[in-house]
Design a protein around this nucleic acid. Sequence first.
DNA 1: CTCAAGCCTGACCATATGGTCAGAATTGGA
DNA 2: TCCAATTCTGACCATATGGTCAGGCTTGAG
Lengths: 216, 216
Amino acid sequence: MNEESPVGRPKKGRREAAREATEQAILEAAEKVFAEAGFGGATMQLIADLAGLPKANLHYYFATKESLYRAVVERIFRIWLHAADQMDEAAGPAEGIGAYIDAKMEISRRHPNGSKVWASEVMHGAPVIQDYLETTLRDWTAGRCAVIERWIAEGRMAPVDPRHLLYMLWATTQHYADFNHQIETLNGGRPLSAADWEAAKTNVKEVILRGIGALD
Amino acid sequence: MNEESPVGRPKKGRREAAREATEQAILEAAEKVFAEAGFGGATMQLIADLAGLPKANLHYYFATKESLYRAVVERIFRIWLHAADQMDEAAGPAEGIGAYIDAKMEISRRHPNGSKVWASEVMHGAPVIQDYLETTLRDWTAGRCAVIERWIAEGRMAPVDPRHLLYMLWATTQHYADFNHQIETLNGGRPLSAADWEAAKTNVKEVILRGIGALD
DNA sequence: CTCAAGCCTGACCATATGGTCAGAATTGGA
DNA sequence: TCCAATTCTGACCATATGGTCAGGCTTGAG
C-alpha cells in the first residue's frame, strides 16, 4: 500500500514511526478510558489527556469517537482470536482445552481493559462488531465445536454440548478481567498475586477438565 | 413508616398505589435503558419516554440520574442475594450448588437487564455500590466459603478453592444474561428456546458438579 | 363541596461534549 | 537551503443533556 525502502523490512522513517507510536498511545489510552467509563461515559478530552496530546490532534488520527472505539474493539478481537490457536494443534481435550484456558486467563490478566471493552460492546448489543459475530466468530465457534464433538465421538471426554462448554470457558476466564474489581475487593482490596493467578488457573482447569471427564 | 388502614394489609389508597406503580415503571424503564446504553449513554429523556411520562416528572420521583441509577442497582443486588438462599438449607454440594445454579440461571433468563447493569457497575469500578461489596457481599461470600469448606472436610466434594468456585458459578450463570446477544447471534439470531435453557442449565450443572466431584 | 397537599408538565437554562477549522510548526526529500 | 506535505493546535461552534421552576391539575380528608 506504501512505497518501501529497497530492503525487505519496512524501515519506517522517523515520521512513520512517530505516527505509529502516537496511534498506539491513543489506542492504549482509549482502551483504558472506554473500559473505565463505557462508550457513553468516555470523553475525547479524557482520552487526549491520558495520551498526552491536545484533543484536536486526536481527531487528526481518528476522525470520530466511534471510529476510535471501533479500532479499540477490533484490536481486542484480534487478540481474542489469536489466543484460540492453542486449541488447534492439541492431541486431546486435556491439553487443548487446558492450553486454551491458560491462554485466556493470561489475556484476562494482561488485557483486562480490552476484555471489558469487549464485554461492554457485546452487552450493548454489539453495535459496531455485529458483523464480526456473524462471520468470523460464528465460523470460529463452528470449527471448535467440530473438534470437541470429534473428541467426544472418540470417547476422550464426556458428551457435553460443545456450544455450552465454550460459553463456560469464555465466561470463567473473562470473569477474571471483567469483574476484577469485585474479585480484588473480595481479596481484601488487593490485586491478585502471581500465586493467586496460578491458583485461579489451576482451579478453573481442574474443575472444567474433570467436569468434562478429560482428566481420568 | 406510614399510617395504614385498620386491616392488616396495607390497603394503600389510590394515590399511594399510583405512586408505586409509576415508580416501578420508571425503575423498569431505567433498568432497560441503563443495560442497553450504560450509565453514560443512557439519557433521562429516553427513560422518561420508555416509562411513558415527561422528563420533568422523572425528576419528581428521582432527583438525579445517579439516584435513579443507584435505585436500579440496589434492586438487582437484592434479587441477587435472595436467590442465594437456595444454597443454605441444602444437605450437600450436589443439591446446594445445583439449586444455586438453577436459581441464578433463572435470574439470568428473567432479568438479563438487571444482570447487565450490575456487570457494568462492577466493570466500571463499582462507583455506587462499593460499600455493598465490602460489607454485604464480603460477608455473604465468607459464609458460603465456610459451607463449601465444610463439605470438602466431610469428603463430599473435591478440595477446590471455594472462592474460585464461587467465581465460576457467578461467571457461568451470569454469562447467559450479560452476553445473551452474543449467544443469540451464535444461536442463529434467535433467542434461546425453553429447551435451550434447559440444556444450558443441565450442562452447567453437570460440568461443575462433576468437576467438583459431587456427582459420584 | 372546599381547599391544601401532592402530583404533573412545558418551557427554560447552564454546561459539557463531539467535532471543525484556519493557520502555525515540523519534517524530509530534492 | 528550500518548500511542499504532513502534523499539530488553540479557538470556536452546534447540539444534547441533566436539571430547574413556576404554575396548572388531581386527589381525598374534613
